[in-house]
Amino acid sequence: MKVSFYTSQREYSAKKDEFNTAIQAVIEKGNFILGEQVAQLEQGIQQYTGAKYAIGVASGTDALTIASDILGFKDGKEVITSPFTFLASTSCITKHKGRPVFVDIDEETFAMDVNKIEEKVNQQTVGILPIHLFDQMADMDKIMEIAEKHQLKVLEDAAEAFGMRWKGKGGLYRHAGTIGDFGVFSFFPTKTLGGYGDGGMMVTNDDELARKAKFFRVHGASKKYHYDYIGYNSRLDTLQAAILSVKLKYIDDAIAKREKIAKQYIENLSDCEAITLPKVKGDQKQVYYVFNILAESRDQLAEHLAKNEIGYSIYYPRPLHLQPCFSYLGYRKGDFPIAERVSENIIALPIYPEITADEVEFVCSTIKSFYK
């Protein structure tokens, strides 16, 4: 049996008429740049997440870069974040000549260890950039408490967390990305809300931040050819917005299916001593964007999966503080031992709404056969 790590074809086949109608409507009207479907999706995201504003941009990476610029994460100022994440979570700071300051992660959740943040705060610190990674939101209660105490800006990297919610001290669940000053989503195809190409969204509850974001995505222009800022060319494609609006209608059903798949993995692999299953800390609602395990002999297991035509991915094989592009920061091997250890053992298994129970069963049996 061949099991893809991800495929879009099954979803497209099931909703082909809706997707084709949405795409054709854009093509027939010909309004490809910031067309009405972009505004419709932005309104849909606002309603779903509870954010006051949603601003569509070309990618999740652009969303991080623009938000970092607006929040002042630049010119030698320091921003506290995690070394265990995708490049864009840190390159958005260095692009503006800001300085990322890493803290190690929690070994059970892979999220930034919030208990290590405050010791890194100094006069140069201007912000915190938590990453809601895989199936775990960062402890936003603690992060916002530290930010308020030290007057820091918070940029939530919720690129992987669309649909996730955190139950804070007020007793209400708040959507990932809507708690800090800015939050960002990625619509990369594999995400819980993913397009058929690149796309991203910035969300905020702040009037002034939203105003700037709308200017910054169109070269910094307040109106055509009138430039208030040096901005970016980063606009969510109208065709992608149309596709995403179709998918947004079914997002809760998609998340429920992901949860069912995750539970099947947990039930089938819980008795495998060579595997450590993911844990969740804090009162939150997951979306199971990725199903990661920590596995003994990870690289050999990966080879075994590949030989059996099972797709997998490794998020992430090398933490950012050990990447050559960040060598100038002066970090060395051993500085963040938990992130380094996790990167040697982590592996992601196939999970998407259309995967079948039989396919998940085959993945699990193949993993178990490796450890016999």
Rank of each mutant, 00 (worst) to 15 (best):
S8F: 04
R10L: 12
A14R: 14
K15Y: 14
K15W: 03
K16R: 14
Q24E: 13
A25L: 10
I27P: 00
K29V: 05
G30W: 04
N31R: 14
N31Y: 08
F32Q: 04
I33P: 12
I33D: 15
L34A: 14
L34I: 02
E36G: 08
Q37N: 12
Q40N: 10
Q40Y: 05
T49P: 02
A51F: 08
I55S: 09
I55K: 06
V57A: 10
I66N: 07
A67H: 08
E78S: 11
V79W: 12
V79G: 08
I80D: 13
S82F: 09
P83R: 07
P83L: 11
T85R: 11
A88N: 07
S89R: 00
C92F: 10
K95N: 15
R99C: 03
V101H: 04
V103E: 10
I105N: 02
D106G: 00
A111P: 01
E119N: 12
E119T: 10
N122C: 08
Q123N: 13
I128Q: 02
L129H: 13
I131W: 05
I131P: 02
M137F: 01
D141T: 01
K142H: 08
K149I: 06
Q151K: 14
V154C: 09
L155Y: 07
E156K: 00
E156N: 03
A158S: 14
A161T: 00
A161L: 01
G163W: 07
R165Y: 14
R165I: 08
G168L: 08
G171C: 10
G171F: 13
G177Y: 11
I179K: 06
F187P: 01
P189H: 07
T190I: 10
L193S: 04
Y196E: 12
M201K: 06
M202G: 02
E208M: 06
L209D: 04
A210N: 10
A210P: 04
R211S: 11
A213Y: 05
F216V: 01
R217Y: 09
G220E: 11
S222H: 01
Y225I: 12
H226D: 15
Y227K: 06
D228P: 03
D228N: 12
L236C: 03
D237R: 07
T238F: 02
S245Q: 14
K249P: 02
Y250D: 15
D253I: 00
A256F: 06
A256I: 06
N268V: 00
L269I: 02
C272E: 15
E273K: 12
G282V: 00
Q286S: 10
Y288S: 04
L294P: 05
R298D: 00
L301A: 03
A302Y: 12
A306D: 08
G311S: 10
Y315P: 10
Y315Q: 13
R318A: 06
H321I: 05
Q323E: 12
P324R: 09
P324V: 04
S327L: 02
S327D: 14
R332D: 15
S343E: 07
N345P: 02
I347H: 07
I347P: 05
A348F: 04
L349P: 15
I351L: 14
Y352D: 09
Y352M: 09
E354T: 11
T356D: 09
D358E: 15
E359R: 11
E359H: 07
F362H: 15
V363F: 12
S365A: 10
S365E: 15
K368V: 08
